[in-house]
């Protein structure tokens, strides 16, 4: 299978998957026994105001009719208007998605930088005290709630040591948006001070994402490296007298990276959708806090918009993983 057919295959499956996802979320959102018209009309609205809002937003029409109408609008590129922010959903998402992407990307990168070397180290020193310690640490990091990690990092690095900011995305006014990723935009603007400020704000939330993510990556890398170490090819390379460093970093790691990259893709997708808590703790203005608020306020269009957005990001990250695997291990490519 070549790269084009991988992309084509993914796209063929992408649309029905997304449609199914939207249908499930559409129904689930409406099972909750709350009336979005009551919330949209405001805390002090009269019964007439509520009814008028319900009519205007079409919440009293049959579910199927509402869903078909929604899909028609989506096909036209209109995700609707948020009843809470009173803005087009697409605009709300565009304002928040870059913050989440920047955080997730840095977090996953850090997870890879932590997880891959430690996984290799753990496998190469199998059953040593180092291996046991690393495995124990990884279980703890996977098991502990992210908000607890976030708060401990805040207490240590912000409150006790005073090294890093407690929350927020930047100290002052963001640079002119080119990519809307503040670190990149600061560099493009040639403002080192702003770049460092953005980086300082990124450290703790990204580390909160990276620690459990890195633990997952470490465990998978360890398993993959152990498989590779015992493979006939490695036995052959050892017999040939190749230096151990070359065997480890050139052959074993390359073979192990296939499953590690798959894991990184999954960690990226999970981090995008699971950033709610971390964004709330670090006051990170991303998609997570928007999603949480939309769910709480039964802002149906916004919930659907976030789902659609997360689904697309997830699909793209999976596609990139597939392509990356082809680069790492081209044996399957014709």
């Amino acid at each position: 299978m070549n790269a084009y057919s991988v992309v084509a295959n993914r796209l063929v499956w992408f649309l029905p998957t997304l449609l199914g996802l939207l249908a499930v979320v559409f129904v689930l959102a409406r099972i909750v026994p709350s009336d979005p018209a009551v919330l949209a009309a405001g805390e002090n609205a009269s019964a007439e105001q509520v009814q008028e809002t319900r009519d205007r937003l079409g919440f009293d029409r049959p579910l199927l009719e509402q869903f078909v109408e929604y899909l028609r609008e989506v096909a036209r590129g209109d995700l609707g208007t948020s009843v809470y922010t009173q803005q087009p959903i697409i605009r709300d998402l565009a304002e928040r998605l870059p913050a989440t992407l920047e955080l997730t990307f840095v977090g996953v990168l850090a997870a890879a930088l932590i997880g891959v070397p430690l996984g290799v180290l753990s496998a190469l020193h199998r059953n040593s005290w180092l291996d046991h310690m690393l495995r124990l640490a990884s279980v703890l990091l996977i098991g502990v709630a992210p908000f607890w990690i976030a708060m401990q990092l805040q207490m240590l690095f912000s409150m006790q040591l005073g090294w890093l900011p407690l929350s927020g995305r930047i100290d002052d006014v963001a640079p002119e948006a080119v990519t809307s990723l503040i670190t990149i935009d600061a560099l493009l603007a040639g403002d080192l001070q702003l770049f460092l400020s953005a980086l300082r704000h990124l450290v703790l939330p990204a580390l909160t994402l990276a620690l459990p993510g890195g633990a997952v990556v470490m465990r998978f890398t360890r398993t993959a490296v152990l498989d590779a170490v015992t493979s006939p090819s490695v036995a052959y390379q050892t017999a040939m007298g190749l230096p151990r460093r070359v065997i480890v970093w050139k052959y074993i790691l390359r073979s192990a990276l296939t499953s590690t990259v798959t894991q990184l893709g999954l960690v990226f997708g999970i981090s995008i959708t699971g950033a709610v808590v971390i964004e709330a703790v670090f006051e990170w203005p991303g998609l997570g806090t928007y999603a949480a608020r939309s769910i709480l306020h039964s802002d149906y269009n916004a919930v659907m918009g976030v789902t659609l957005c997360a689904g697309i990001v997830f699909a793209i990250s999976n596609l990139l993983v597939d392509l990356l695997q082809m680069v790492i291990d081209p044996r399957g490519v014709k």
């Binding site: 805040q154 409150m159 407690l166 929350s167 927020g168 709330a280 006051e283 806090t289």
Partner: peptide
């Protein structure tokens, strides 16, 4: 500034 998390509001005040 919107700060949804209680603990962050508290620590931010203390800091």
């Amino acid at each position: 500034r919107t700060v949804l998390e209680t603990n962050t509001r508290v620590l931010g005040l203390m800091r």
